[in-house]
Design a protein around this nucleic acid. Sequence first.
RNA 1: GGGCCCGUAGCUCAGCUUGGUGGAGCGCCCGGCUGAUAACCGGGAGGUCGGGGGUUCGAAUCCCCCCGGGCCCA
Length: 1059
Amino acid sequence: MLRVVDLLSGFKYDQFVVESWVKGFWARNRVYDLVKAKSSTLHRKFYFLDGPPYASAKSIHVGTAWNKVIKDIVLRYYRMSGYNVWDKPGYDTHGLPIEVKIEQSLGLQVKKDIYEKVGVESFIMQCKAFVDENMKAMSEQFKELGVFMDWGDAYVTYKNDYIEAGWWLIKKAHEKGLLYRGYRVLHWCPRCETTLADYEVSEYRELEDPSIYVKFPVRGRPGEYLLIWTTTPWTLPANVFIMAHPDFNYVKVKVKGETLIMAKARLKAVMEEAGVGDYEVVGELKGVDLEGLEYDHPLEDLVDAQKNLIGYHKVVLASEGVVEYEGTGLVHSAPGHGVIDYDVGLRLGFPVVSLVDDSGRMSEDAGAYKGLYFRTEANKAIMEDLERKGVLFHKSTVVHRYPVCWRCKTPLALRATNQWFIGVTKLKDELIREAENIDWRPEWAKTRFMNMLQELRDWVISRQRFWGIPLPIWTCRVCGYTHVVGSVKELEEMGGYRPGDLHRPWIDKVTLKCPKCGGVMERVPDVLDVWFDSGVSFYASLGYPMRRDLYESLEPADFIVEGHDQIRGWFFSLLRSGVIGFGKTPYRRVLVHGFALDEQGREMHKSLGNYVEFEELISRVPRDVFRFWVSSNTTWEDLKFSWKALDYTFRDFTVIWNTFVFASTYMGLDGFDPEVVTLESVRGYLEVEDKWMLSRVNNLVKKYSEAMGDLRVHDASRALRSFILDDVSRFYVRLVRRRVWEEADTPSKRAAYVTLYYVLKTWLSLAAPIIPFTTEYLYQHLFKPAEKNAPESVHLLDMPSADESFIDERLERDMDIARSVIDAALAARAAAGLKLRRPVRRVIVAAKDPEVLEAFSRLSEVIGEMVNAKSVEVKGLEFLEELRVYTVKPRMGEVGRDFKKLTPLIVELMESKAGEIARSITSKGYYEAQVEGATVRLEPRHVEIEVEYPSWLSARESELATVAVDTQISPEEEAEGYAKEVVRRVQHMRKEAKLMIDDRIEVWITGDEGIVKAVEAFEDYVKGETRAVKINYEEPPSTVYSKEWDIEDKVITIGLRKV
RNA sequence: GGGCCCGUAGCUCAGCUUGGUGGAGCGCCCGGCUGAUAACCGGGAGGUCGGGGGUUCGAAUCCCCCCGGGCCCA
């Protein structure tokens, strides 16, 4: 026969010790493997796809920890609910940020240092080694948090197989006619010689630049000019057209015999700035009227590139980029050096001219300006030439925010560069259709996603860097033919070979034979945008297309979850890749989580000093405390990190722990055997509070399953917390304590044990996904030793399902009513200064609603127990009404104004007929009387009514009822009170003497006569409570432990010893 | 400048979809308990529900505008 063994109360509770014990237990018994083995036998698949964290540092961010905890909770829940869960984690390992870290560690300044000082081969090896170290450290931290994922087999984006899988998608895009080469205007650092992705353009400086107004001659109309404004003279040689706003008003202005065209709204400001007082408006026209107006470029003769642009120099209409708050309303446009310029030019089919080279110097085609550095030398030379040609209307300087390189602080240039694109705008309809099939949590994430799809642009996939998936595109040196390679096999078939590592520089050495002309084909030296990598994870992490079975049996992913920044990031890149590769969404359900911010709601930054290091977190806060706390934060809202909040959660754990210790202690003491004494066997002996508790726990199961099934992890977590703290610990346990203290083996005690056992075990199963350490410890030390066929680990249990037969909604409602009345009664006691230890004769509960009255009758014992009342009388309201004494005070202001000289008589009336008036006003809302022959009507505003009860009743109104505590105490009750006081002190002394709970004692008591008499009168009671075999009414011998006590100013001496 | 989210007690947040007299935990003040005890229990004070309009008999809740914060774009 098994039985509950008290393994908990002997252990000095320390959550850190609990967790490290569990960690050891899991390792010794290979619990993850057991859990995984069980899950893999199940038939319902659950494909979870891990959003790979970026492996650029050793220590994870609090947000990353939260992220993995959410994932772990959901995965554990699904495993316990009977799913075959795919739980492979992943790491994102390529990209510029990692390259930069390596460059910094090597002290490299510019991009060409990589070629010249270290060599690409060594650089790549170092990137890889760096990432390897980071991944190892991160995995350890995730394991530390108790995350059960397949850490031995994570997917890594830099592996050859993964790269090859990536190539497959590029080939697919090519086959669908989506892959193309084109220009894109990007920020460029002339010192680092690299493009900067938009998100990297984050630093700005206040810099001084020229501010010049330039006259562009209108073709064929001598003396007439288009006036433009610019702060970047170096872009003028690359000018292709001028933009005007179709809706703006423009003017022709006569200045010194010349006619200038500019926006009407800018006229005054520009003339003022240029110091021109003498001007005359000679004509007015709309923007649309300017369309097509041709002009001659003022530097045409000096710039070679301009010779090819002559047909394009005209005014075009555009609403973007043309403003009325600065400039002239006519915008000089160079598609090679401006984003809007580029877009407008592209729309019109105009050429792109970029005249700045990689190092920031003007290029060959810039003619006279060739070799000059753009922001300094070129600016100066160009302005001089403009002045010489008489087209510089005005020149000054401006200080404005200008983007600089975040690494070297060099001012950036906007520059059109040749890049590879995937034309996803062609797939817009398909993307939208597929996005409609995704189930979003919360709902607004879908709105955000859909809005973003409306603004879809083609995807620039190429980067001129090193550490990334090499672009699988080869070009023929002879005929220029381009071929996209979709696999390593294809590489070999094309005359190439398989390098040991598919990265640069090894892949760069692989040449192919041109299928068109037989010439040598070389690889385009670019690598792929790092967003590409994680976007293909849904199939690449499963080895597709090299092996197909796994992907085909698992797709689509059933669940993904990441932060809300990933709506535009990973969620989108996955969908994009899914549609390109397979024509459908790769995932069906998404949960979005918030950001982990600091206590004030600001982002955590090492530079702000508010960054929380993982090591500090994990040394100060137990893992389950962290998990419990973060899981209760509304998932999709931001998490404000707070040590204090974690401390409070920590405190909750003590209560939870003590609840289990309580059960363990008494069940252990009585050798309770849950396999013999079952819920079925005690069903007839269940007390009303047991029935209530069983109903509550089954409702909890329902609520929890609904929440988890709907990915409302926080609702599940909160429900667990309030259940164990409020319902179990603070209510049920307190209520059954007396039943459990009972020494005899009564059916009632058994019923309490079974209920408690069942409730705690159910709670443990539900809580296991959220607090896996604590639940495992409690399971191993309380439940497992008591059950023959119990699984090895709590994480091998099946999720409980609700037993509807225990659910009694009516009883739960009634108990709510009772609890509110208990609170009111306790308040009434407190008001009367009656300690809870002292029993009161009776509590009277009065209510109007028959349903409420019925609830009280049904639960009167529970109320009596909680309030410590000998009896609970349930009455109609009229019972208390009869006892009430009313005082009615006049509100002189109101009474005086309404009743004038009758006032003194009214006041008199209020005194003499207080009860009658008060009852009438409270029930009917008014009171009428005859005063000096007149009918007087008193209303609530005239009076202040106070209710008093006789001094022996302490009453309290609650929402549904009025509760009155009878404060009268008979001599016998007083004696009983003293007996309890003595019991309390004996218990205290037992504890001081370090006696076991079941040790027997002998007691001596002497001193105040009243108290000693009280103990004599209640001797059996005192003996029972204190496990005393004998009480001696005399001075304790000096050999026993004794102590003097004060009870309400009466002195007694108590002595005791173990027998 | 745009899209989406958040703004409720000193703090952290429920409530808002489906309008009906504002909740919890912590903190604070007061009291109690001492057989779960480096715990625990009760009572109390504390709120212009970010601001302003509107719809309605009635708005924290629905609509509009504004302010502050976050994310993503421009």
